[in-house]
């Protein structure tokens, strides 16, 4: 990535990723994670939202040995090192899927649907997965 792209007039945009898909069944979750990691080089103000089945991406204790897939859940813990620190999870999605904060692999902020709506409204750009 070129420095010019990164510095593009020094304007910091609010960039929101919305993750709504479970891991493994489709490639959306992994693709999203890779885009977040690559995009982190651009020094934008990044927020990552997990809602609907996307909350399952953060489930602790994933073990892909028997199914012979790559377990990418530990990579969510690397996001902090990439300065991606705003992780939001919609409470309603967790409640309807039998998950609580203790089930998640990284510290997140748990938000109501209303608060998620506001976070989405606050973004300059939204990338949907």
């Amino acid at each position: 990535m070129s420095d010019e792209m990164m510095e593009d007039e020094g304007v910091v945009k609010k960039l929101g990723y919305v993750n709504r898909k479970a891991p493994y069944g489709t490639v959306y979750a992994l693709e999203s994670l890779e885009v977040v990691l690559i995009g982190a080089a651009f020094d934008q103000d990044v927020s990552v939202i997990f809602m609907d089945d996307g909350v399952y991406q953060l489930k602790k204790g994933q073990d892909t040995k028997a199914s012979e897939m790559k377990n990418f859940s530990p990579t969510y813990r690397a996001l902090e090192g990439y300065d991606v620190e705003k992780l939001y999870v919609e409470k309603e999605s967790m409640d309807t899927r039998g998950l609580s904060a203790d089930d998640l692999i990284v510290p997140v902020e748990i938000k109501s649907s209303e608060e998620i709506m506001q976070i989405m409204e606050d973004q300059d750009i939204i990338l949907s997965f």
Partner: peptide, 23 residues
Amino acid sequence: LAPDLEARGVQDKVLKGVETVDY
């Protein structure tokens, strides 16, 4: 299917009465 439950980290939350099977 147990390998799919394990991959998703949800093997401990399986509903009583559901039988898990391997490949």
